[in-house]
């Protein structure tokens, strides 16, 4: 919504760095605990950032601290879902959006790989039938079409 951001009101937040940054710092500590748990037991954690009362700059501060890592993926189901590994290995940022590019949910996933990236067992049920159908239709066609 570009019109909104063009309103010349700049909202002040609590000073970052020295003591606190509103609510971003507690979340970073929660991430730290989740990482320790992942390393010790292999158990993953999801943190729903929508449930946190963030001020306008808290999210930016949080994401700036986490940084950008190596993996980036987009899932196209019910609109785009952007999965981004952060600069901290094992910490993933998942941005669930709908087709109009509005956010549904924003999760931090602390684990080896986010669940939504894995192949889904239920979808595997249809894997063979889908492939067989495509093989059949491919055989029906002339080879040079491929």
């Amino acid at each position: 919504m570009p019109a909104l951001s063009s309103i010349p009101v700049r909202v002040q937040t609590m000073p970052c760095g020295t003591t606190d940054c509103g609510n971003a710092v507690p979340i970073l500590h929660e991430v730290r605990h989740a990482l320790e748990r992942l390393i010790a037991t292999g158990e993953g954690t999801q943190i729903d950032l929508n449930a946190i009362p963030f001020g306008p700059e808290d999210e930016a501060h949080l994401l700036a601290v986490l940084g950008v890592g190596e993996v980036r993926a987009t899932i196209d189901a019910l609109g785009p879902t952007h999965v981004q590994e952060t600069a901290i290995p094992g910490v993933w940022l998942i941005d669930y959006r709908i087709t109009e590019d509005q956010r549904l949910a924003l999760h931090l996933d602390i684990g080896d790989i986010p669940e939504i990236l894995r192949t889904q067992r239920q979808d595997l049920d249809t894997a063979l039938t889908t492939l067989d159908a495509r093989l059949t239709s491919a055989q029906d066609r002339a080879p040079f079409e491929y």
Partner: peptide, 21 residues
Amino acid sequence: VSRRAFLKFCTASASLMALPP
């Protein structure tokens, strides 16, 4: 609706119900 879409829908619903992920 694919399974991933369904999962995403559940994620959104849980988020809006303030249920833990």
